[in-house]
């Protein structure tokens, strides 16, 4: 591990000021000299592996703004402070009652120990777990722009079938993000250019020709909060995660579903897919195909077909298309059958 400077800024403005001093607006947050750390469950790992090489770490855990550590429910929705731990949010009563899809997505992620360490903002910014990215002797366009992609023709069972490019097929492995994108969450950030908010759907960038650009953030910007609007019918929602073992594994396919039903007819559906795409993935075509329809196995299958119409398989991950469809069908039917 390379030596680095470790600082604990006292508040957001100090953190931003320090980050601003050691980075430029052209720096990618993941490649900048100064980087923020909260739970450290992803960044510390990648520093040990030589994937991330900041020479200055700004620890956000001592920031004095109390809102960063709070979950607040208002008439407009629910607001998660950026430093709230995954485990705390998963068990929060307002979350489990009003937004089961969020609680599920957190509860089914990682392990108990990691959920107690990892912050919510850090979780949504977690980087891909692609093995060719994690191990620095492989070619990787995301880690070293322009070096090539070893995964493209390599062992790619874990890789994405949606949102991939010729430069990168690395999967976005997070779970919480699928619930957020489905529920039209908003992200608040603060940086040297001021405070701003953006739709969660705008936070992550598809790889395209620039897979090393992972988000819309600049290097001195800190996510301060995540807001989810009030959606009364989100009580009928769930997150279904399919994986090789029962716990502590990334999704091979997952689905975040929320349904507004009139009897068995769909007024509105919210659908996001995990484990199959390069970024948090909203399945808008699937949502539209269900609108006004009776939700049954046939309409669920039609929605799943729509969700994966653009999927592009590689050698080992073609099964994710079929598995992703079945995961969505099952999630839709289980959500329909929820007692709320």
């Amino acid at each position: 591990m390379r030596p680095f400077v470790y600082e604990q800024p006292a508040d957001i403005s100090a953190a931003v000021a320090t980050a601003s001093r050691f980075t430029t607006n052209d720096d990618q947050p993941t490649r900048a000299n100064a980087q923020f750390i909260a739970g450290g469950t992803n960044l510390a790992d990648y520093m040990k592996l030589g994937v991330a090489e900041p020479n200055r770490l700004l620890d956000l855990n001592r920031l004095k703004e109390s809102g960063l550590r709070q979950i607040r429910v208002t008439d407009d929705g629910i607001r998660f402070g950026a430093l709230v731990r995954m485990g705390e949010a998963a068990d929060h009563r307002d979350v489990t009652e009003r937004y089961p899809v969020i609680a599920d997505s957190l509860r089914l992620a990682a392990s108990g120990q990691i959920r107690n360490m990892a912050s919510l903002a850090g979780n949504i910014l977690q980087r891909t777990r692609c093995e060719y990215f994690r191990e620095t002797s492989w070619q990787c366009n995301k880690r070293v722009p322009g070096s090539g992609c070893a995964a493209m023709e390599g062992v790619n069972r874990q890789h994405a079938v949606l949102g991939a490019s010729d430069a990168c097929i690395a999967t976005y492995h997070g779970d919480f993000a699928q619930a957020l994108i489905a529920l039209d969450a908003v992200v608040h950030a603060e940086g040297s250019r001021g405070a701003r908010k953006m739709p969660f759907a705008k936070l992550h960038r598809q790889p395209g020709d620039t897979p090393h650009i992972e988000t819309d953030l600049v290097a001195d910007e800190i996510i301060t909060a995540i807001e989810v609007p009030a959606i009364p019918w989100a009580r009928r929602s769930l997150y279904l995660k399919i994986r090789d073992r029962e716990s502590y594994a990334f999704a091979l396919a997952s689905a975040a579903v929320a349904l507004d039903l009139d009897g068995e007819t769909v007024r509105e559906a919210r659908i996001a897919l995990g484990g199959v795409a390069t970024v948090p993935w909203r399945a808008s075509a699937a949502e539209q195909s269900l609108q006004g329809k009776k939700l049954d196995e046939a309409s669920a299958e039609a929605a799943a077909d729509a969700a994966f119409a653009q999927a592009r398989p590689r050698q080992h991950n073609a099964f994710k298309i079929e598995l992703g469809k079945r995961t969505l069908v099952r999630a839709l039917l289980e959500t329909r059958d929820m007692k709320v």
Binding site: R129, E131, E135, R245, Y248
Partner: peptide, 23 residues
């Protein structure tokens, strides 16, 4: 095994899966 290079790919407990308690 990455057949092109005769190299092991999933060289950690993230992707080398063994049963966990829940299994």
């Amino acid at each position: 095994v990455d057949r092109r290079y005769a190299r092991y790919v999933n060289r950690d407990l993230q992707d080398y899966l063994v049963p966990v308690n829940a299994d």
